[in-house]
Design a protein around this nucleic acid. Structure first.
Length: 416
RNA sequence: CGGGGCGUAGUGUAACGGUAGCACGAGUCCUUUGGGAGGAUUUAGUUCGAGUUCAAAUCUCGGCGCCCCGACCA
């Protein structure tokens, strides 16, 4: 894409009504725009990042047999009443139709997925069954915070699994655990993310959260310095010893929850009386698990974790583009050579943001490139062409190197 | 929901109760091209409502909006 065509541009100074780092970086670089508190637009650059995140998640979830669907946002009152959450779920947005029908805007989808799967699954032969979606969720948060880390409207992947018994659920639960780390690894967050024990609510003793260390976090975990177990402060309170190894040395860290996995058991299948016929002819309640990842929160967390004073440093797989091609100077020769490189990339399917702006100084182009944070920067100028080269710099490194024009393609293939 | 803070051009930031200024951006013209270029010129603002006052961006009250801390978080 030509940068001169990009309708957004970078902003030099951060807006004063955003304090959090992720919001400042993403707003300044033109990834997002705030409409109102906790409600954001994803601009071309930001939407590209979201799409990359979505692709990684759907690939990984499909690798553990998740089948993708799309559920409605308008969820009838009676579905929520069935589980008691019309009243109990305080963050539910409630809307009325012209004829007086009432809906809760989708904030989680047990109330939809259970009756859907129930229509098709009636025998042990149909189990297990794994269904997921990626969709915008609505939650009337009492207090939004930290840019796109806690918003009223956000994209989330929610996966639901259905099983004939607890044992089968346990097996899949472990699989999801592993897959979540695979996802986090591809997004550059694995090293800073802990699987933590958290309160399990009414049904199970514990749930598991994937908590990434960042000062912008809203929870605190205690990490055992001996065995590495991380425990959420909310259940750590009365214990001085590690649940796992019994030692007493902990390190406290602020963390943001990027994923959550939950053994629901029959909590939601029971209200809908979702039963299956087992091998021996007996009727049993289906056992269920649910697994969430917030896509937009993930994007904010990545920005929060990967940056320096000049801007964002996107991990390769989630970057809005593979390379940032910067043209310095407007002579015919420079124009010609840069366009040639650009077209060659396009042809190969390498995603390039081409800074073809004629009215910007080199310094401004470099500053923008640093702020936007595309992993690879390629500069073509009179100086590089004199040596028949382009200059290449990784966003995460300080050194630059010259690469011969005719070797550029093989260089890129090796490094991307 | 409790507490705190803040609302001035598109953005950032000044102005004792007394002429709303500066920088960046944006527009036009000229010159510039390896780390946010230079000159000329133009553009645009006090969140809303009420009150106090000869006079309100400034003081008081209320609304609206935004941020931060806490509580909450299926």
């Amino acid at each position: 894409m030509r940068q001169s065509q990009l309708f957004t541009k970078t902003i030099r100074e951060a807006s004063k009504d955003e304090k959090s780092l992720n919001a400042q970086l993403l707003l300044r670089a033109g990834f997002i725009d705030k409409l109102s508190s906790g409600v954001y637009t994803f601009l071309p650059l930001g939407f590209r990042v979201l799409e990359k995140i979505e692709k990684i998640i759907s690939q990984e979830i499909e690798s553990i047999n998740g089948q993708r669907i799309l559920m409605p946002t308008l969820v009838s009152k009676k579905n929520w009443q069935q589980t008691g959450r019309w009243k109990a779920f305080e963050e539910l947005y409630k809307v009325k139709g012209k004829g007086g029908q009432e809906y809760g805007l989708g904030s989680t989808h047990e109330e939809v997925i259970v009756p859907v799967v129930q229509k098709y699954v009636s025998s042990y032969k149909n189990l297990p069954c794994y269904v997921y979606q990626i969709q915008t969720k609505f939650r009337d948060e009492i207090r939004v915070k930290s840019g796109i880390l806690r918003t009223r409207e956000f994209d989330m992947k929610d996966l639901y699994s259905f099983h004939k018994d607890e044992k089968d659920l346990d097996k899949y639960y472990e699989k999801v655990k592993k897959t979540y780390f695979d996802i986090l690894k591809r997004m550059g967050l694995k090293d800073k993310t802990y699987l933590t024990l958290a309160s399990g609510g009414t049904f199970s003793k514990f749930s598991h959260e994937f908590q990434t260390i960042t000062p912008a976090g809203e929870d605190i975990v205690h990490i055992c310095q001996n065995c590495g177990l991380a425990v959420n402060e909310e259940i750590k309170k009365d214990h001085s010893k590690c649940f796992q190894c019994g030692r007493r040395e902990f390190k406290k860290e602020k963390v943001i929850e990027v994923g959550n996995i939950f053994k629901l058991g029959t909590k939601y299948t029971k209200p809908f009386n979702f039963q299956f016929t087992d091998k021996d002819g007996s009727k049993k309640l289906v056992v269920m698990g649910c697994y969430g990842i917030g896509l937009s929160r993930l994007m904010g967390t990545i920005a929060e974790v990967h940056n320096d004073k000049s801007g964002i440093i996107w991990p390769k797989e989630v970057a809005p583009f593979d390379a940032h091609l910067i043209q310095i100077g407007n002579s015919n020769e420079i124009n010609k050579q840069t366009k040639k490189v650009y077209n060659a990339f396009e042809k190969q399917g390498i995603e390039v943001l081409y800074d073809d702006r004629e009215d910007k100084s080199p310094g401004e182009k470099f500053a923008d490139a640093d702020l936007i944070g595309i992993p690879l920067r390629i500069v073509i100028s009179e100086r590089t062409l004199a040596k028949n080269c382009v200059e290449i710099k990784k966003r995460s490194k300080t050194k630059t190197e010259l690469v011969k024009l005719n070797l550029l393609n093989s260089y890129i293939c090796k490094n991307s």
